[in-house]
Structure formats: structure tokens, C-alpha cells
Simulated scan of single mutants.
Amino acid sequence: MVIAVIGQGSIGRRHVGNLQDLGADVEGIAWRDFDRGSFETRSDIKGIVIATATEVRLELVRMAAGMAVPVYIEKPLHWTRAGVADIYDTLGDLAQRSMLGFMARYHPVVQALAAQDLSDVYGFTFEIGHDVRQWRQDWSFPKSYAARAEGGGVLLDLCHEVDMAKALFPDLTVDHVTSVGHADFVGVDFASRIALSGGRVAGTVAMDYLSPVSLRRAEVNGTRAARSLDLLAATLTVDSGTAETTPYPYDRNDMFRAITRDWLALIEDAEAPLQPLAPRLSDMRASSDLIAEAWGKRQFAGTAQMSF
């Protein structure tokens, strides 16, 4: 039985390699070569990784549902709440054996923070930024999915931190979103700051395509302790009068392998034990709705000065 990976960009190729390393029989299929008519008649497919651009995923979800095959869907699920609802309605019970690609939930610093008692927390900030022109060798933003008004932009592209905030503080809702656009890419946000609140907690999530240095950090403040996270350095500092910094050595690909391992277990058994915070699709509706709501509430306030 085969795991099919549809979409052979950098993420799709990473999935193929990790699945092979985990012992799965894998077939990578480029979206431009995909033939739905012949694929959906196959009886040897046990799971489908959907690693395509966001706007074509619903079509593949419908196909997978018709085949009764679990899916691993790259994040975000959809950029509108109607699209999110459509995907959940389409998959039905298959969502219990499917996964949404929020692999940052497996970051050891995030898991260490989530294991703490956070009942004292009243405020937080999450921030992620990187110059989009420096992402990968041979990367071209203007030619990518990220440059599209629907399904693109930084809020959707770097939405891991929105999901982290929702996982840690489930009562959060969107207050408002302020975004910076670009004159050459109408409707695409290059920087967004999301104000969130709920359950006696308030905070912000900021993301951008503009920072000249890569950064990924957070502050989580409570009455008992101030907690500082650096996800690139993989450290967690807890200061309750005396600051203690704990390093969590890791390799970025460890997160991909961990989420893939959990998904392979779910394919076989919907009741399989998973790691803490595992983004089983059936548990991810609230997070997906929050991201879609934030995308819909963007208010543009200026344009980025960045040339391509």
C-alpha cells in the first residue's frame, strides 16, 4: 500500500524523504502531472499528503473522501471559514485519521511550554519574520503561491504562531488585524499583526516577509513567571525572580518526522496514542476558523518598500 504525496515543491519533497525514512512505500506526484481520473480509481493508496497550493486543496480533499483515504493537509486548511467548513463537511469521520500540517506543535520548546501550568498567563506576544527573498535557493516569491491574493500572503504562510497561541489559549478570538501590503501584489499582506483575546488572556501575533534577519520568538507573561521563547535558538527562559534558561537541542526535520509518524499511526488506528498537541484534523477546526477569521479581518495600512 502506497502513501501518495501530491505536490513536489520543497515541502512535498521533504514529505517523500521522511516517509521513506519511516519505512513507508511512497509515490511523489507533481501537481502539474496529476491525473485525477486515473488516480482516484487506484486501490493501493492508503494515505494522501496534499502539499499543493492552498487554492487547489479542496478538490483533492473531495477526491480523497470519495476514495475513503485519510489525508495529511499542509497548512493552512483554507483562507475562508466557508472553505474550512466545506473541507470538514467533505471529510466527515476521515478527519479522525487525518492530520493538518502544523508541525511547529512538535517543536520541543513549544511542547515544554505547553506542559507548564499557564493558568497565571494574562498576556503574550508571538513574532516570526524573515526576508521572503532569502527563503530558499532558486526561490521566487512573485512566481510562488504566496504571491496570490487568495491563499497567499504572510498571515496564511506563517500561521504556525497563530495556531500555537490557539493551542495554548483555546478561548482566543480575533479582535483586529493590521497589515502592510505591496504595490505590486494587491491583496497580499507582507506583514500582519493580529490582536487576540479571550479567557482573561490578551496578546498579539506578528508575522512579516520583511525582517532582514530571521527571527522567531515569543513572550508569555503571567503573575507567577515571565516566559521567553526563542524557537530558532531552541531555548525557553522562565523568570520568576531568578531567570533559568533551558536549551532544547533539535533538528528542524525532527518536527516533520514526528508529525508524520503520528499520522502513519492514525492511518492504521484512529485511537492510536499521539504526542501532546498533535494536530489531528478532527481537533483543528477552531484553529483553522481562527486563521480564516484573521485573514478576513485584515485592514491594510501602508505598503512595503521591497523590490523583486
Rank of each mutant, 00 (worst) to 15 (best):
V109S: 00
V109G: 01
V109R: 00
V110N: 02
Q111P: 01
A112M: 06
A115I: 04
A115S: 15
Q116T: 04
D117G: 13
L118E: 15
S119C: 02
S119M: 05
D120H: 13
V121M: 12
Y122N: 03
G123N: 15
G123L: 07
T125P: 00
F126W: 14
F126G: 14
E127F: 08
V132F: 08
Q134F: 10
W135L: 15
R136W: 14
Q137R: 13
W139K: 03
S140V: 06
S140K: 09
S140W: 11
K143W: 06
Y145I: 08
A147D: 04
R148L: 05
R148D: 14
R148C: 01
R148V: 09
A149S: 14
G151M: 13
G152L: 11
G153T: 05
V154L: 12
L155R: 04
L155F: 03
L155Y: 03
D157K: 03
C159W: 00
E161H: 09
E161Q: 11
V162E: 00
V162F: 00
D163Q: 01
D163L: 01
A165E: 02
A165Y: 04
A165P: 03
K166F: 05
K166C: 08
K166Q: 14
K166I: 08
A167T: 01
F169N: 06
F169E: 00
F169G: 08
P170I: 12
D171T: 09
D171K: 13
L172Q: 11
T173I: 09
V174N: 05
H176F: 06
V177S: 08
V177Q: 03
S179M: 03
S179F: 08
V180D: 10
V180L: 15
G181T: 04
G181L: 10
H182T: 00
A183R: 11
F185P: 02
V188D: 07
V188H: 04
V188S: 04
A191G: 03
A191L: 11
R193A: 10
A195C: 11
L196R: 12
L196K: 11
S197N: 12
G198W: 13
G199I: 13
G199S: 11
R200L: 13
A202M: 10
A202Q: 06
G203M: 09
G203I: 06
G203Y: 10
T204Q: 11
A206S: 14
A206C: 04
D208W: 05
D208S: 15
L210F: 10
L210E: 05
S211A: 15
P212R: 08
S214G: 13
S214A: 12
L215C: 07
R216C: 14
R216N: 09
R216M: 15
R217W: 05
E219I: 13
V220W: 01
G222H: 04
R224W: 08
A225M: 10
A226H: 12
A226K: 15
S228M: 12
S228C: 14
L231T: 02
L232E: 00
A233K: 08
A233F: 07
A234G: 12
T235F: 01
V238F: 05
D239G: 07
S240F: 03
G241F: 04
T242F: 01
T242W: 00
T246Y: 03
Y250R: 01
D251T: 11
N253Y: 05
